[in-house]
Design a protein around this nucleic acid. Structure first.
Length: 196
DNA sequence: GTATGGATGGACT
DNA sequence: GTCCATCCATACT
C-alpha cells in the first residue's frame, strides 16, 4: 500500500499540470483521480485542444460559450454537445484557450450512485465517454467555470501508467493530430485505440 | 432574423 | 453498421 501524498504535494503537482501545454497535460492526467462530491474514478482517457487548433472550441476566439477556456487554468469548462450531453474539460495550458477534454474514467468512488444515475450496472460502460461520465458525476452547465481543485471537485495525482496516443474522436478538422490519450489496455475507454 | 452543424450516446437493424 | 434526439454559438441573409 502506498502512503497518501501530502496536500502540499498534490497542490504542487496540480500547478505543474495546469501550466503544461495541453497535450502534455492531457497525457499526464491519465491515472489521476477525479471526483465530484466524492463520486468519480481514475482518468483513463483524455483529449487535448488549444487555441491554434481548428478542432478546438477556442479556435475562433473568445465567445460567451467558451469564455472559461480563456480564463484561469485549473477551472472546468462544461459545454453541451449535440443539444443533449454535457462534456467536461479542464482548462490548462501554456496560453489562453487551451483545455483537456476528460473522455473516460475507471469508476472507483461511489459506484452505486453512478450506476443509479446512469441506469447501467456494467462498470466498463459507466464512464466510458465524455457525456457518460458527466451523467455519472452529475456535471452540468452549473459547474462551468468552477475550480477543479475545490469542492465539489477533487483532483488527486495517481501512479504513473503506460499511456497510448491516437487521433481524437468525433471531430472534423485536424483529424490526424494524435492528441487523444489513454491508459494502455484499459477496459474503461470510450473506444479502443488503433493498434499501431 | 434564419440556417447549420457539432469534442455524443443510445436504440435499433 | 445506421438513425435520431435536440441545444446553442456561429455564420450567414
Amino acid at each position: 500500500m502506498i502512503a497518501p501524498i501530502s496536500r502540499r504535494q498534490t497542490q504542487r503537482r496540480q500547478v505543474e499540470l495546469f501550466s503544461s501545454p495541453s497535450d502534455a497535460a492531457a497525457r499526464a492526467l491519465i491515472g489521476w483521480t477525479l471526483s465530484v462530491d466524492g463520486v468519480g474514478g481514475r482518468i483513463v482517457e483524455t483529449e487535448a485542444y488549444h487555441r491554434a487548433d481548428p478542432a478546438s472550441h477556442s479556435f475562433a476566439g473568445p465567445t460567451r460559450r467558451n469564455a472559461v477556456m480563456f480564463g484561469a487554468v485549473g477551472h472546468v469548462y462544461v459545454y453541451r454537445s449535440y443539444g443533449l450531453h454535457w462534456c467536461l474539460n479542464l482548462v490548462c495550458g501554456d496560453g489562453p484557450g487551451s483545455a483537456v477534454l476528460i473522455r473516460a474514467l475507471e469508476p472507483t468512488l461511489g459506484l452505486d450512485l453512478m450506476s443509479a444515475r446512469r441506469g447501467v450496472d456494467d462498470l466498463s460502460r459507466l464512464c466510458s465517454g465524455p457525456g457518460k461520465l458527466c451523467q455519472a458525476l452529475t456535471v452540468t452547465q452549473a459547474h462551468n467555470g468552477l475550480r477543479i481543485d475545490a469542492p465539489p471537485f477533487a483532483l488527486e495525482p495517481g501512479a504513473d501508467v503506460q499511456v497510448v496516443a491516437g487521433p481524437r474522436i468525433g471531430i472534423s478538422k485536424a483529424v490526424e493530430t494524435p492528441w487523444r490519450f489513454g491508459e494502455a489496455g484499459s477496459p474503461f475507454l470510450s473506444r479502443p485505440f488503433p493498434t499501431t
